[in-house]
């Protein structure tokens, strides 16, 4: 008697429990993104920083961030609708709740057509929409001489600036191995990047740029920085045990400061001093 009662109760609340569990997927899924920037508010002061995109100091970065947000909204809507339907079907059609006969259906031709065409058009739209940003980032190299050559090697980034003749690979070049890259802001710069040994990836989170570097193959990278400051250079391709520590810093400075820095490097080169690696 009592056993059948508990069974009866179980039959009522358990199915609802499972459907509500699946309802939590879209709720927590959306909430995680919505609350992400505030997640660290409860963390110790040392960690206090919004959990979101890193600061963007490039001219093109907003295009990428906006595209991310656009896709986030679009997929977010699809996510909520499909997960919502899943919850609703679980809630409504549980065997004991649904007293109607099952819908003996093998499918629907018109539905298939609808849910093929709509995603196809949407996906095609995203595909075409982004092409320009990709071409700008990787295909339309500006016609200017490279301002620096970057070489990845296990586990350091070397920088080679042209000397007064403004040409790379001549005897007056300045080669720096101290892991500090100086570049001017407010103008488009072109970098030659390559590797001396294995693959590395030259990753500048704050400039929204990443390019793997390959031994025996030089590539171009270009951008316009908008703000002075000092940011991380990350190696983003597994390059050996020291992959994690292959860190450098990019110093974005004004044009006059940049010139002055190069002048200082030139003097240093003549006295042959090897600079220390940066600590942070």
């Amino acid at each position: 008697m009592s056993e059948s009662q508990t069974n009866e109760q179980q039959r009522k609340w358990l199915p609802n429990f499972w459907s509500v569990l699946f309802l939590m997927v879209p709720i927590f899924g959306v909430a995680t993104f919505a609350l992400a920037p505030y997640l660290n508010d409860i963390a110790p002061a040392y960690f206090k920083r919004p959990v979101w995109f890193p600061k963007d100091v490039s001219e093109h970065g907003y295009v990428i961030d906006n595209l991310f947000m656009f896709i986030l909204w679009l997929t977010g809507i699809v996510f909520v609708i499909t997960e919502g339907l899943l919850f609703y079907f679980m809630w409504k059609y549980e065997a004991n709740t649904n007293t109607k006969k099952v819908a003996y259906s093998h499918g629907s031709h018109s539905l298939e057509v609808v849910w093929t065409i709509i995603p196809a058009v949407t996906l095609l739209f995203i595909a075409i929409y982004q092409m320009d940003a990709w071409a700008a980032a990787k295909m339309r190299a500006p016609d200017i001489p490279p301002i620096v050559e970057v070489t990845g090697r296990q586990f350091n980034w070397d920088f080679r600036y042209p000397g007064p003749d403004n040409e790379l690979y001549t005897s007056d070049d300045i080669v720096r191995t101290d892991g500090r890259l100086y570049l001017p802001v407010g103008e488009e710069v072109l970098l030659r990047i390559t590797s001396a040994d294995v693959l590395h990836s030259f990753f500048l989170p704050n400039l929204r740029l990443k390019q793997d570097v390959i031994p025996g193959m030089a590539q171009n990278m270009w951008f316009t920085a908008t703000e002075t400051g000092e940011y991380d250079i990350v190696c983003a391709e597994l390059c050996g045990w020291g992959h994690y520590k292959m860190k450098a810093r990019i110093h974005l400075v004004t044009r006059p400061q940049f010139e002055a820095q190069l002048e200082e490097f030139r003097k240093e080169k003549n006295t042959m001093r090897v600079a220390d690696r940066p600590q942070d």
């Binding site: 499909t82 899943l86 079907f89 059609y93 065997a95 649904n98 109607k100 099952v102 499918g107 539905l111």
Partner: peptide
């Protein structure tokens, strides 16, 4: 999703 629609779901 269509498969679950209108069924008698056993969890």
């Amino acid at each position: 999703l269509g498969t679950m629609w209108g069924g008698k779901l056993q969890f």
